[in-house]
Nucleic acid binder design. Structure first.
Lengths: 150, 150
DNA sequence: TGCGTCATGTCAGCATCCTGACATACGCTC
DNA sequence: GAGCGTATGTCAGGATGCTGACATGACGCA
């Protein structure tokens, strides 16, 4: 019950950062052949599951700022992987949709990422898998809902 | 047993990123009054636990490149929080040490970060705490040892 | 001794991301 | 209808981190 952090090998926060860094590196390596960065993949994956999301929604879901997501969207739009209406149908939000090409590359990327996740959790049992996810969710909730933006 | 990632709410990788982002935000907010960024704190914490580490060692421990750590060290050295010999006593590595001022600010920073960690894991039991850390370590090991650099 | 490999510190260039700011559009209250 | 707060898209500037590269020192091996 010390007041300071103590040995890093016993720190949950350090282990968390370590795991996130390793996952990021593995995803980066896996997605490179497709010419996708992790934020770009995250954007596609979110759009695949919830079509019509606005740029601000995507930014919150991918844990980046609206400005960063804006740049990501411009790049993906130029590659013809997604499309947005020129004018907002309501309010200012521009609902974004995947194109067939976007769905195609997402399908391949998602398989790659799923393989990375399976590799990451291969030594965990099915219950351990869900337990880990639940524990992480509890940590997120305890730190307060994710601000995500500014 | 799908091949793709599936609903993000059931993805361990997504939960991991979410938790890491929330922890980063909370640490950032807590350390701001001390004028420390997370990488700067990580550097101090590593040096406090293992004095004499080289810049390359610190970079691996903090999950950044040598170049980034180099910039961090320059800033902390200018603030008088750590000191390095002008010439390498052996090889090229410059063993870094905290100054008394560095140890002082580290002590305060470490208390803040420890409080954040306790808040993050407050809903977990003691066994749950260690279980989560073990699970994360297993994930890191399964993804292969952390490359860390280049 | 000489050579190849590796690790380290450091510099330059570039990509990425964030902070700050502004204009617009909706919802709410008065 | 007028005013206020909030959310969004977008632009400019700056901080931060990374890739690439080079020189130096240590070690192993022929």
């Amino acid at each position: 019950m010390t007041q300071e952090v103590g040995d890093l090998n016993f720190s949950v926060g350090y282990a968390l950062k370590q795991a996130a860094a390793a996952l990021r590196t593995a995803m980066d390596a896996g997605l490179r052949p497709l010419g996708l960065s992790v934020p770009q993949y995250a954007c596609l994956e979110l759009l695949g599951q919830r079509p019509g999301l606005s740029a601000a929604d995507l930014a919150r879901g991918a844990f980046v700022t609206r400005q960063s997501m804006h740049a990501v969207l411009l790049g993906l739009e130029e590659r013809g992987l997604l499309e947005r209406p020129a004018v907002a149908p309501q309010g200012r939000a521009l609902p974004t949709q995947l194109t067939p090409a976007g769905r195609d590359i997402l399908s391949r990327a998602s398989r790659i990422v799923a393989a990375v996740e399976r590799r990451m959790t291969q030594s965990l049992t099915t219950e351990g898998h869900q337990r880990l996810r639940a524990d992480l969710a509890a940590c997120v909730a305890a730190l307060g809902q994710d601000p995500g933006d500014h």
